[in-house]
Amino acid sequence: YSSADAADSPPSVRVQSTTNGTLVEVQPSTQLEAGEEVLRGWLLDASAIKAPLQQLVLDWTSERDGFQRFSIEASDDLQHWQP
């Protein structure tokens, strides 16, 4: 989430890996006030999958009918992204 009037500045992403698992923390680039947040996207962590990923299947359930727009990007370090 980010503020409704925020520019397209990327959020802060922190990754901490331990033997017990991985913690991925995503923070908006600016502080949010209650009620002004807008969903900007999702982060899917597929690091536990050891085989190469060949496809992504989405089962989209929404109150809204119609088309949804997606762009999918991948990153090994969460700093450099590729479509």
Rank of each mutant, 00 (worst) to 15 (best):
G21V: 14
D45E: 05
A7L: 06
N20D: 14
G41D: 01
D8S: 11
E36H: 10
L44P: 01
Q16M: 06
G21S: 14
E36N: 13
D5S: 11
N20A: 15
E25W: 00
D45P: 04
V13K: 01
P11R: 04
Q16K: 07
V38N: 05
A4R: 13
E36F: 08
T18N: 07
P11L: 05
R14H: 07
K50V: 03
Q27V: 13
T19L: 14
P10A: 08
Y1S: 09
L39T: 13
N20Y: 04
P10W: 05
T19H: 14
T18G: 15
T22C: 13
P52G: 13
N20K: 12
V15L: 02
S17M: 01
D5L: 11
V24H: 03
S2W: 00
N20T: 06
A51E: 10
E33F: 08
T19Q: 13
A48L: 10
L32T: 04
P10V: 01
Q16V: 12
N20M: 10
L44Q: 06
N20I: 03
A4I: 14
Q31C: 05
A34H: 06
S3F: 02
R14C: 05
V24P: 07
Q31I: 07
G41P: 02
S17V: 09
L32S: 04
Y1R: 08
Q27M: 14
V13H: 02
A51R: 10
L43M: 14
T30N: 08
L39H: 11
L44F: 12
A46I: 14
L53W: 12
V24G: 01
L43D: 11
E37S: 15
A4K: 13
A48I: 02
A48E: 06
A46D: 04
V26E: 09
E33I: 12
S47Q: 10
A48Q: 13
E36Q: 14
E25V: 02
S29C: 10
L39R: 09
I49S: 06
K50P: 00
G41F: 03
S9F: 00
L43S: 08
G21F: 15
A6K: 07
Y1V: 02
Q27D: 08
A51C: 03
G35E: 09
P28C: 06
V24C: 03
T18C: 09
L53G: 09
Q31W: 04
S2P: 05
A6Q: 14
L44C: 02
